[in-house]
Design a protein around this nucleic acid. Structure first.
Length: 477
RNA sequence: GGCUUGGUGGCAGAGUGGUUAUGCAGAGGACUGCAAAUCCUUGUAUGCCGGUUCGAUUCCGACCCAAGCCUCCA
């Protein structure tokens, strides 16, 4: 059994073998902080967080670098629009985004790189490209990558320059020798933020920063390069051109791209005004629910967020926590340790074979439904033959890779109930009074009245269930 | 126009050269005073046309359709 990863470069699943056995160097393109983080950013960050965690679970020593692009046209534009210094604008967005990513349950990457803190590396990198004949300085002070010096261009996105497959930009910048050349360094317009460079005052282009930060923090070659699928062309293609022109070596061994997020079947975009901000998601749902919803899909596929996307996930998460809470108190008098150990081994195998298959969290979660059904079935027995508490704890351990189900189950259940009551401005005493009233009516065989009470509670979103030990209530979520 | 990815049951969404996961919804049943909740059982699908094969949803080819990228984008 070994880990297989779908490599976008080769367009097939490949057995994972890092450059250095036991160690993984991974880079994922992070966010340009020109605005607030949205679901798409959340999805991508959760995907690479889970990948990092599974690699660690598999015993790899992982170095995960993730960048913030903290200077670009949109940042300058958006900062100017509200009269804030662009650097301060970026800084504030980074602080809030970090806090939101923490709240989402993501581990912090090993290195959180920032373009503006690597300006020297970027300048060095550009110098090397110029020295090697791969870049040129235009009269405007801009520096461009000379695309025809890199014959491998297009190998990731499979475009062919000879066939002129790229739609040519209409607003070609004046200093370019070839309209497909892309900017490495942009000269500063009057009043714009700038850094000193051998080519005058300016700032780095978008693509070069990732090449430079990779070089600085991970070296010439890395194992996994990730990002959203929309970055394949031109961003990642340009990164390859830059880095491999300097090193002459294969840049990344595996290219991993996660799918995009749609809202009710439509592409998320500013013009449609249908974006979902991470901040709003976190205000409405807990991190377990959000992660569960995002990870039910295969990472490489697009996600379509419909109205029941998160509510359904919340229901599943609540059910799983409820089961775990019940499992903690299960009767252990008839437990068979050998059978329990076998079950745990079986669960582990299902977990690993799903995750080994290109991090198939969708398959994993489908398997997990079976595990919880199993525990529920055992719990219905007066004396379970499996140690469901131990099985539950094992599942929790495995779910640590997704960073779901890591809260105290009893607390999660009661917190959910309390949040519901608070939301409805209702007290538990009220519910218990109603239950007592119903019991009284039932005793007098006044079923019309007992049913009325039940329907009333149901209408408020509460279900009640008669058990041998009495009537219990639960929230319908 | 080019490139890429994909087309699976009512919807969502996996795997698989031969009994087609899982979730939501549906049907029947158990339980119940009746329900709810829960559990059990169950129906329904692999875009179209060829090819390879004893056998294809799975492999190959053509076609149709959809989405993404080719401008900043996770």
């Amino acid at each position: 059994m070994s880990l297989r990863i779908y490599n976008v470069m080769s367009r097939q699943k490949e057995e994972f073998a890092p450059l250095t056995p036991g160690r993984v160097k991974m880079y994922a393109c992070g966010i340009t902080v020109s605005g607030d983080a949205h679901v798409g950013h959340a999805y991508q960050s959760v995907v690479f967080d889970v990948i990092t965690r599974y690699l660690a679970y598999r015993g790899y020593d992982v170095t995960y670098v993730r960048n913030y692009t903290d200077v670009d046209d949109n940042i300058i534009k958006n900062a100017n629009a509200i009269g804030v210094d662009p650097m301060r604008f970026a800084e504030e967005h980074i602080v809030t985004t970090d806090a939101q990513m923490d709240a989402l349950g993501n581990n912090r990457p090993t290195v959180m790189a920032r373009a503006t803190r690597c300006i020297d590396d970027i300048i060095e990198f550009i110098k090397k490209l110029i020295d090697g004949g791969h870049a040129y300085v235009a009269d405007t002070g801009d520096v461009y990558f000379k695309l025809d010096t890199f014959p491998g261009y297009g190998k990731l996105s499979h475009i062919n320059l000879d066939k002129n497959e790229i739609a040519v930009r209409k607003d070609t910048e004046p200093g370019k020798q070839n309209e497909l050349d892309f900017a490495l360094w942009k000269s500063a317009k009057p009043g714009e933020i700038y850094w000193e460079s051998p080519w005058g005052r300016g700032r780095p282009g978008w693509h070069i920063e990732c090449s430079a930060m990779n070089m600085r923090f991970l070296g010439e070659q890395i194992d996994i390069h990730g990002g959203g699928r929309d970055l394949v062309f031109p961003h990642h293609e340009n990164e390859i051109a830059q880095t491999e022109s300097v090193t002459g070596k294969q840049f990344a061994k595996y290219w991993v791209h996660c799918g995009l997020v749609k809202i009710n079947g439509q592409k998320m975009s500013k013009s449609l005004g249908n974006g979902i901000l991470l901040r709003d998601m976190l205000a409405q749902y807990d991190a377990d629910t959000i992660r569960f919803a995002l990870l039910r899909n295969t990472y490489s596929n697009d996600i379509d967020i419909t109205d029941d996307f998160f509510p359904v996930a919340h229901r599943h998460v609540y059910r799983m926590y409820s089961t775990l809470a019940a499992a903690k108190d299960a009767d252990k008098s008839k437990v068979d340790d050998t059978k329990t150990a076998q079950k745990i081994a079986e669960i582990t195998l299902e977990f690993e074979s799903a995750m080994d298959d290109n991090f198939n969290t969708s398959h994993l979660i489908a398997n997990a439904f079976g595990w919880f059904d199993f525990i529920d079935a055992e719990l219905r027995k007066p004396q379970p033959t499996y140690d469901v508490k131990a099985i539950g704890e094992h599942i929790v351990k495995l779910f640590g890779v997704l960073n779901i189900l890591q809260q105290d189950a009893t607390k999660y259940v009661s917190d959910t109930k309390n949040a519901f009551l608070r939301d409805k401005n209702m007290s538990e005493d009220f519910i218990n009074e109603r239950i007592a009233e119903r019991a009284h009516a039932k005793q007098e065989r006044d079923f019309a009245r007992s049913d009325a009470v039940r329907d009333e509670l149901l209408a408020m979103g509460l279900s009640i269930r008669d058990t041998p030990t009495g009537t219990v209530w639960d929230v319908k979520i």
